[in-house]
Nucleic acid binder design. Structure first.
Lengths: 220, 220
DNA sequence: CGTTTTTTCCGTATTACTACTGAAAGCAAA
DNA sequence: TTTGCTTTCAGTAGTAATACGGAAAAAACG
């Protein structure tokens, strides 16, 4: 999913080396912006409430406040920051608690860059849960199945501007309103609409909004 | 959810008395239409493939073919028939297998009419999983949480005609097209659109489609 | 049977959207 | 540097949708 909005991330882990490594990996993709680094759960919730990031990557075992408690507190905040849990080993009971607390994904610490990216995009772009392949207990198999992506991936790519306009259209704003709110010409918006509808292969706004909803282009 | 489309149902249970009782209860609501009655899994899949019902209410323990196998086969069909499982007792392992097979709900046989109706509407209207309150093991607590309704209930009621038109609008049909496909005047459709938008409190088609998607008025 | 809701239909006017053009500036990749 | 994509803007025209009105038949409900 190129041309996607920036994902701001807060990272929490009590191991300096791992933390730094993780941050470096995240920084290698320009879509990811690390806005905060925490060494324990308390720091984490402070950073999350301060920066309201899109995502928090949270180690489960941390001093002062563990990842489970911290996740619960993050979930209680009004801003919707997603949480992906990190753990050294696959301990089913712990992962379970983390998911109950509200985490949307779980990762072992020895994963590859690629798996990390996939996990983040699954959770953020496609609003799905993410579990590692190694967790093959029956409960996880079932949960994987139940938490399939509700959105089939769109087959075409939309630019950031286009996604912005789609989103505003879905919020019931007219072209004029969108134009003035973005300080652009009405004709610019109309051109975008035409292009968007062509890409979607639909005939009218109705089809455009329906497409956006079903493909998960907008989160309403 | 009054003014909702008819739900066609196939019932499968090997106990005559229970089966008849269930059918009578279903018939007490005019929204439910029992289109088939099966005494075992084999009959069930024949009836489902013949009638393509909205819902199948399936006993787990049946001769010839049990509910789990039958559910798997129903899920493999192209038509999307939902399955609600029935069981005598709450046996976690069995329920688990049933959910893995693709059932969206589970009910004990000693439930009330009201609970049955709620279960059906949860599964059909709101696309959510349904578990009985009595299953309070941690796994079910979590699964309940994960399978919350993605759709907040609409606060207004729409007539069948209105829902029909909403659905067609969401499918990118213009008023003219809808008018001719329903053999109605263009003005009739336009009037409906106005009424619908007033009820939804939106300003344009875009808002209408977005409302329909978020409230689950249409299944796209 | 009366009441209410639903469904049907119309005129007029205005606004919004879509179709068909065309084009220039910016930016990034090849 | 050329190529391509994104973003910006515009004229003209036609079509669709929305905002005001108003109204009557049909069906559902008590």
């Amino acid at each position: 999913m190129p041309n996607s909005p920036i994902i701001s991330i807060v990272v929490a882990d009590d191991h300096l080396f791992f933390r730094e490594g993780l941050i470096n990996v995240l920084k290698s993709k320009k879509r990811f912006e690390v806005v905060g680094i925490a060494g324990n759960g308390k720091e984490l919730i402070e950073l999350v409430s301060k920066h309201k990031p899109t995502l928090a990557i949270v180690d489960i075992g941390m001093p002062v406040m563990n990842g489970i408690e911290a996740t619960k507190m993050i979930m209680a905040m009004e801003y919707k920051t997603e949480v992906i849990a990190l753990s050294m080993h696959t301990e089913e009971a712990i992962i379970f608690k983390m998911l109950e607390a509200g985490a949307k994904g779980y990762l072992e610490k020895n994963i590859s860059k690629e798996e990390l990216f996939i996990a983040i995009e699954s959770v953020i772009d496609y609003n799905q849960f993410y579990f590692p392949e190694s967790s093959t207990t029956s409960m996880f198999r079932l949960m994987k199945k139940l938490s399939f992506s509700p959105y089939p991936k769109p087959s075409v790519l939309f630019s950031e501007r286009e996604l912005e306009i789609v989103s505003l259209v879905c919020q019931d704003f007219s072209s004029k309103e969108i134009a003035s709110s973005l300080s652009l010409s009405n004709r610019t918006i109309e051109t975008h609409r035409v292009n968007i509808m062509q890409k979607m292969n639909v005939k009218s706004v109705a089809g455009m909004v329906a497409y956006a909803c079903t493909k998960g282009l907008v989160q309403l």
